[in-house]
Simulated assay, not measured.
Amino acid sequence: MTDQPAKARIPFIPTILVGLAVLAMIALGVWQLQRRAQKAEALALAAANPARPAVAFPKLPPVESDILFRPSSVHCLTVVSWQVEAGRAADGSTGYRHIAHCSTGAEGPGVLVAVGVGQKPDDKPAWTGGQVEGWISEEPDHRALLMRASGKAPPLRPMLIARQAPAGLKPVAPPTAADLPNNHLAYAVQWFIFAGVAVIIYILALRRRNATKAA
């Protein structure tokens, strides 16, 4: 009597779990493609917003497309702290953008104001607050790439880009639609690649498992 080769078996539960994970990744990729079209519409709206009439500064995130880059103003009661980021001045030069974390009263979320661009990160702006005019923008984006790609990242807080800078700093470059990259196609491709890699890894794992059992 000759030995019959063991029939390859596919584990039910692991296969279901991997299949669900792959479907979720594909769904996220499709969702990012849909978001790409929505972002294109938002970019077109943001490009026209700087020339539109001023609006009240939003107190809480997210910053909606219809007010992004619109002229606005805030009153910084006191500067609580400073944040330094790489930035570009209105004259095209680069440097360090100084962002004031302001209080606006005894309670409330406060407000962020990009007051100007300096040449040294440790510059101490001679500005303690007051009424500021500028454009509505968003805080610098330091959210993790995976959180942004999955849509689970918290919304960015509103930030005012000051039209004029205090002594010792250059005015920050006015906002443009070019400041808002449309990365949704790249995110979609990443999710599709993740799905494909997951399938390949699982197939290789099954082959190794079956080969080990047949040995």
Rank of each mutant, 00 (worst) to 15 (best):
Q38S: 14
Q38D: 15
Q38Y: 12
E41M: 13
E41W: 05
A42T: 09
A42E: 15
A42L: 11
L43W: 01
A44K: 12
L45Y: 04
L45W: 07
L45E: 15
A47R: 11
A47L: 10
A47K: 14
A48S: 14
N49R: 12
N49H: 11
N49M: 11
P50G: 02
R52D: 14
A54F: 09
V55S: 09
A56C: 11
A56I: 10
A56D: 15
A56K: 14
A56P: 09
F57W: 07
L60H: 14
P61R: 04
P61N: 12
D66K: 05
D66L: 04
D66I: 05
I67E: 03
I67L: 04
I67Q: 06
L68V: 07
L68M: 13
L68Q: 12
R70D: 08
R70L: 07
S72T: 02
S73I: 06
V74E: 10
V74N: 10
H75Y: 14
C76D: 05
C76L: 01
C76T: 03
C76V: 03
L77D: 15
L77A: 14
V79M: 03
V79P: 01
V79L: 01
V79C: 03
S81F: 01
S81M: 02
W82N: 06
W82S: 06
Q83K: 15
V84W: 07
V84Q: 08
E85H: 14
E85Y: 10
A86Q: 15
G87D: 00
R88N: 13
R88H: 09
A89P: 04
A90W: 02
A90Q: 10
D91W: 03
G92K: 11
S93V: 02
T94Y: 09
G95D: 07
Y96A: 01
Y96S: 02
R97Y: 12
H98G: 05
H98R: 08
I99C: 01
A100V: 14
A100W: 08
H101M: 11
C102R: 00
T104D: 12
A106T: 10
A106M: 10
P109A: 11
G110R: 00
V111Y: 03
V111C: 06
V111S: 08
L112D: 07
A114M: 00
A114L: 00
V115Q: 07
V115R: 06
G116T: 01
V117Q: 05
V117L: 07
V117Y: 05
G118Y: 10
D123T: 13
D123A: 14
K124W: 05
A126T: 09
T128R: 11
T128Y: 03
G129E: 03
G129K: 01
G130K: 02
Q131L: 14
G134K: 07
W135C: 08
W135G: 09
S137E: 09
E138G: 09
E138W: 06
E138D: 13
E139C: 04
E139I: 13
P140Q: 04
D141I: 03
H142M: 12
H142G: 10
R143G: 03
R143P: 00
A144L: 13
M147V: 12
S150L: 12
S150Q: 10
S150K: 05
